[in-house]
Write a protein that binds this DNA or RNA. Structure first.
Lengths: 168, 168
DNA sequence: TATTGTTATACTCTATAACTATA
DNA sequence: TATAGTTATAGAGTATAACAATA
């Protein structure tokens, strides 16, 4: 394990290998693989997050949903338009406050959710391969720490509450 | 630690919280934060990776460089065009094989490298906050495992060799 | 005026396909 | 024909700014 925290070989002025670089790149690889897995199930990461959040709790409005997904309102509208066109969601005005669009899953949306959930779970199983529960617990803790450090000064990531997942 | 590996609360049909989701999202947060840090230093992740790889070793051609950065050749050309326009790199034909473009850093490119390297190191320090060396070692190992699992069936990420960083 | 959401527009990163130039 | 790289084009995801509708 003496290879960790090493320096880059062959660099004129040696400097420590940034853990942030390793992390960002591992992140990229995992994100791409996850995206690909979702793609094979007919979805994308934002679509999956939107479906998941709709299932988790009916958000009061699109602003809340956008925050939960981690995008701006206009970006959410962009995705909802596409999902609407695909017949996955419906948007109806709230009778009590007609400014509010109530987003709901259609039957096709429910089916898409199930497909993407299964894909996410399968990806998860693949990702866990060879890792003990204790490793995963450690990883979760460390990732939480990193996310907190990365987001220092910014709002905590919206899914932080999900990650804590108050188990019952 | 009983919160780990829990289930999502408030979901009609409870299903395990995918670690892949947590990971992809942590990844996203870290990647965004890293991008922002690089942005404040006048760069982006691909630009930083290109500069880093040019410093690490003069790649024989652009195909090698593209692979090291993790993009296609055309995408690399895209970035090199921009970097060329900014005066960070020069491209000159190899006399021995005039099909080959030899990419070199200009003085401004060297300066940009230093700025981005410092930004990456600073980001790294911020990311490490509160983590012991042993934690980082564990994290690196786990991330390596995940990257390997995520990339199962695909080519190993080009920076894998970097991550191993044969320490001297 | 403040809130909710959409539209218009644009930027970045990425990719594929077709092309040029060289070998 | 094969290789190195560029150009042209496109698409996904994101963002900001301006706008409309409602409160």
């Amino acid at each position: 394990m003496s290879m960790l925290g090493g320096r880059l070989a062959g660099v004129p002025a040696p400097f420590p290998l940034p853990v942030g670089l390793r992390l960002a790149q591992t992140a990229r690889a995992v994100e791409r693989a996850f995206d690909e897995a979702l793609g094979e199930a007919g979805g994308t990461l934002p679509v999956w997050l939107i479906l998941l959040n709709l299932k988790l709790s009916k958000p009061a409005n699109q602003r809340e949903l956008a925050e939960a997904v981690g995008v701006r309102e206009a970006t959410l509208t962009h995705h909802l338009n596409a999902m609407d066109a695909r017949g996955l969601v419906t948007r109806t005005r709230d009778a009590a406050n007609r400014r509010v669009q109530v987003v709901a899953l259609t039957e096709a949306g429910e089916a898409a959710f199930v497909r993407l959930r299964d894909a996410a779970l399968a990806f998860d199983a693949r990702l866990r391969a060879g890792l003990a529960d204790a490793d995963l617990a450690t990883l979760t803790t460390l990732l939480g720490h990193l996310a907190a450090n990365a987001g220092a000064g910014e709002a905590a990531p919206p899914w932080a509450s999900l990650a804590e997942g108050r188990a019952e």
